[in-house]
Each structure stands twice: as C-alpha cells, then as structure tokens.
C-alpha cells in the first residue's frame, strides 16, 4: 500500500524528472550543453516508485540514463543541471557531466557510463550492508541491454549465493540504442534470467507506479529478511531518442506516439490519483507547475555558475588525508 504522502512524493518526483529532462533537451538543442545526454522521459515511474521506499542510507547504482535515478534518490535539480553543464557548482564539480552523477551523501553511488558497470558495485554495497548488519539495501538500476553483459550474470550469481540484500531493477525500454530487445536477448522476459540464478524474477508494467511499487516492496522484504536478491523487470519505453540528437530511424513514429500519448506514466498515475479522490486535478497541476519552475531555475543556476578552475584539475585523483 502506498501512503497518500508517498503518492504525492512520487508524483512530484516524476514531474521533477520530466521537466528536468525536457529542460536538458532544450539546453542541448540551444548548444548550451554538450556531451552524451541520455534522457529518461517516459520511464519515471520506475525510479520514483523504487526510491520512494528507500532512505538516504540505502544504496543505488545507476546508468548512463541516470538523471531520473539521481533525482529520485534526492539530487537537487540545480546541482544536477550544473553538472550536466560541467560547472563547478555541479555534483561532481564539472568532472562528470551527464553520465557519472553521484551523491554519496544520499546513497547514490553513481550513474555509470559503462553499460553494466554499476551492477557489481551495487552488489558490493549490499555485501557491505550484510557484513555491517545494518539493514540497508542496495538497488542496481540497469537497462535491458546491460543484462547481456557478463557483469549482470556474475553479479546475480554472486548476490544469490551470498544472499545479499540487493534488488536488481531492469528497465526494459525495448531497445539498446537502435537494437530491439528481441534481436539481442535470448529470453522473452529479462526476468526469466532469474531462474538461472535461483532467485525470484518478476516482470511488471514499468509505467504503472503501483505495479513497480508492489513488486519492489516484496523484494525489499525478502532482502531484509536475509533471503537474498530479486530481479524485477519493469517494461517501459523511452519516449525520446537514445541520446539527444538521435534521429530514431530504427523505430516507428507511431509506436513512440502511442506510448507518449496513451501510456505516459505521469498521466496514468495522475488519473488514478484523481479518480480515487486522493487529490484534485488542481492540486496535482500545481505540483507539475512547481516542477517546471524548479527546472527552469535549475537551468538559470547552471548557466550562471562558474566553470571549474583548470588549475584544480589534478585534485581528487587520490584521497589525501
């Protein structure tokens, strides 16, 4: 059961992510932002419904498409946008750009530009939690494509034999860049792969906040009980290109429109909230509007922030006590 308070939080986070992404896209198109920028629009239900059940003490690892996970795990839009623009005020002082945002104070062990690179790291965070007996859990977010990397398979096995408190969240958005899942992946559902490691695997509608929430709730219980990992596959769709500037010749415009217009996770969630009488449409519209304003302000903050000083470039290569 999602509390009313959590519903509101989830709705707010989804809108923050959406407007952050749309703003980043705009900045990229205006040449104010460079590099590889992978947007999460259309997949917001997953990050929001999962992170609603985590505290700052729990861990996540994220991917190249990481803004949504970072925001849901507590990132401020202004510092995230500043990082996208390579500014000193960004989460990683302009060192990381879009693909490696991290905030260790919130348990975000980082977006990761190497596909599959974060999965073993989350596994290690879960190992630490188990050794420290502190009741924390770790979550690894990754794409369908990443489930074809060796790191995925090795990590699932390791986490399973050691019964680690980790939840593997596969965001199956149908493609790895231009390649449809069926062409690259041997199983119909990524969750089928759980069988090979003797752990539960479930597939849910990744655009349905409630479905993701419930599957994750069960998985966290299992993890905290010491029974080990769960693989949750969230079927979703990215409604923008793989990166900003992707011509998207590999997919049918009609599919994109269908997902965008009829399966938008924010609109679906909003409808449920209003129909159930949890909130009025006006209340939710106000949250949406506030997210838009916050994303605009984040862009202003980022644009007006200073660049890092090249004289400091060698800082942080090593830890100096």
């Amino acid at each position: 059961m999602i509390s009313k308070e959590q519903k509101l939080w989830i709705y707010e986070i989804m809108n923050k992510i959406r407007y952050f992404e749309l703003k980043a896209l705009r900045l990229f198109e205006e040449n104010k932002l460079r590099g590889s920028v992978h947007l999460y629009a259309g997949e917001e239900a997953v990050a929001a419904a999962v992170c609603a059940q985590l505290t700052d003490d729990d861990y996540i690892t994220s991917t190249h498409r990481g803004h949504g996970h970072c925001i849901a795990k507590g990132a401020q839009l202004d510092k995230a946008m500043a990082e996208l623009m390579g500014k000193e005020t960004g989460y990683c002082k302009g060192r990381s750009g879009s693909m490696h945002i991290a905030d260790f104070t919130k348990g975000n062990l980082g977006a990761n530009a190497i596909v599959g690179g974060g999965i073993p790291i989350a596994t290690g965070a879960a190992l630490a939690a188990k050794l420290q007996k502190n009741d924390k859990v770790a979550v690894s977010f990754f794409g369908d494509g990443a489930s074809n990397e060796g790191t995925f398979h090795e990590s699932l096995n390791l986490a399973a034999v050691w019964k680690l408190p980790i939840i593997f969240i596969c965001e199956n958005n149908g493609f790895g860049i231009s390649v449809p899942v069926a062409q690259s992946t041997s199983v119909e559902n990524i969750s089928d792969r759980a069988v090979g490691y003797g752990i539960p695997g479930v597939t849910v509608d990744g655009n349905d906040v409630f479905a993701v929430y419930e599957a994750f709730e069960t998985a966290v219980k299992r993890a905290k009980a010491g029974d080990g990992p769960t693989l949750i596959e969230c079927k979703t769709y990215r409604t923008l290109g793989h990166w900003t500037g992707d011509p998207q010749t590999y997919r049918d415009k009609k599919d994109v429109e269908m997902w965008r217009d009829t399966k938008d996770p924010i609109q679906l969630f909003k409808k449920v909230l209003v129909d159930a009488g949890d909130f009025t449409a006006a209340e939710l519209d106000a949250i949406e509007e506030a997210a838009k304003v916050e994303a605009d302000a984040a862009a202003e903050f980022a644009i007006n922030s200073p660049n890092p000083d090249p004289a400091d470039v060698m800082d942080d290569v090593f830890y100096d006590a």
Binding site: R34, G35, G86, K87, C92, G94, R95, S96, G97, H100, N307, P308, P310, V313, M314, V317
Partner: peptide, 16 residues
C-alpha cells in the same frame, strides 16, 4: 596527458 582521468568540462579536458 596529465596523470588524471579525462574530465567532462571542456576547459578541464583541454588542461589535461
């Protein structure tokens, strides 16, 4: 290149 990973910011990248 300096003994430092390649940073994202272009001015930093050029400095490395």
């Amino acid at each position: 290149a300096k003994a430092c990973p390649l940073p994202f910011n272009i001015e930093l990248e050029n400095a490395v």
